[in-house]
């Protein structure tokens, strides 16, 4: 549509964003790539070419493989909890309940809690093995308390992060659910479909687009979970809760090894791109319709 003059104006208005984002993407990326081939430590001002040394060091660090596994477990675990839990929660809230508005507000609230606060509150007041709410709940059943961050560190972090993202999934799935055509459901009832087959054949397909979107967006954020780990476990015990971002952070700001940290950054990009590659294909397809 429109005329040449409009198109020229349009290009001019788009230009700043494109240029800025291009700089934002290319410059740090180039710098990271450059540093990743340098022997460069903040403690030692003399730099030299390192070849693949930093990559070799980072990749053979036993912490690396566990960081990859931890990253995937964390992302996968939170996705599983939030998508499955979110679907059921959305179905529950979509029932004709009293005070649906307030229930919605209560459920979405954790999403607005900043990660550092969420992590601190859970670490201390919920999961503390002596004074925490869970310890109290277990004691009610005569069970011994669990020392969450010592016994099940990664699961504990997963729970905290899932608590923040479950509301997000619920809200989006609920919105999608509410746009489901009531007549479709009624038609299915006329056709004799029970609640379970209605869910499988009508509700789930209707939700598929929303679920895709939830997975995409959560993955973007979950790949870079950082604050929750820093605040609760500091990556430990050992490297039990160190994910890729945290590993790079420890290399850069704790060991001051710029070269190795940059190599780690490059590897984090590669991991993210592998994930993104699949996601963007699905989403690109799903967003078109």
């Amino acid at each position: 549509m429109a005329t040449t003059q409009m198109r020229t104006t349009a290009r001019l208005m788009l230009a700043p964003s494109v240029i800025l984002l291009l700089i934002w993407m290319v410059v740090p990326l180039a710098a990271t790539l450059y540093y990743s081939f340098q022997n460069y430590s903040l403690l030692n001002p003399i730099t030299s070419f390192a070849g693949w040394g930093n990559y070799y060091y980072f990749l053979t660090d036993p912490a690396f493989s566990s960081a990859v596994v931890n990253t995937l477990l964390l992302v996968g675990g939170v996705l599983l909890i939030s998508v499955v839990g979110g679907t059921f929660l959305a179905l529950l809230i979509d029932q004709p309940i009293f005070g649906q508005g307030i229930v919605r507000i209560l459920v979405i609230s954790p999403f607005f809690v900043m990660p550092t606060v969420a992590a601190l509150v859970w670490k201390n007041m919920m999961m503390n093995p002596i004074y925490g709410i869970f310890a109290w709940l277990l004691s009610l059943f005569g069970l011994p308390p669990i020392d969450f961050f010592a016994q099940i560190p990664l699961l504990s972090v997963t729970i905290i992060v899932a608590w923040q993202w479950l509301p997000f999934a619920t809200l989006i799935l609920l919105t999608a659910l509410q746009s489901l055509d009531g007549e479709q459901i009624e038609a299915a009832e006329m056709d004799g479909a029970g609640a379970v087959s209605r869910f499988i054949y009508l509700v789930l397909p209707h939700l598929s687009r929303a679920i895709t979107v939830v997975i995409l967006i959560e993955t973007i954020f979950l790949l870079s979970v950082f604050a929750e780990i820093l605040v609760t476990t500091n990556g430990g015990p050992g490297t039990a809760t160190t994910n890729l971002p945290f590993l790079v952070y420890t290399q850069a700001l704790l060991s001051y090894d710029v070269g190795v940290a940059s190599a780690g950054g490059v590897i984090a990009i590669i991991v993210a791109n592998i994930v993104a590659f699949f996601l963007m294909r699905i989403v690109g397809k799903n967003l078109e319709a």
Binding site: M1, A2, M6, R7, T9, A10, L14, S17, V18, L21, W24, M25, V27, P28, L29, A31, T32, Y35, I220, L223, S224, F226, L244, P245, V248, Y249, A252, L253, V258, A261, S262, G264, G265, V266, A268, I269, A272, N273, V275, A276, M280, G284
Partner: peptide, 28 residues
């Protein structure tokens, strides 16, 4: 309002910059 053939690609590219993990560019 003035979409071109490339608009969709530009939008996807912009979103893809979000895929770049922050930690990768922490050092620079």
């Amino acid at each position: 309002f003035n979409p071109t053939k490339r608009t969709k690609d530009i939008l996807m590219w912009m979103l893809s910059t979000k895929m770049l993990p922050a930690v990768a560019v922490l050092v620079p």
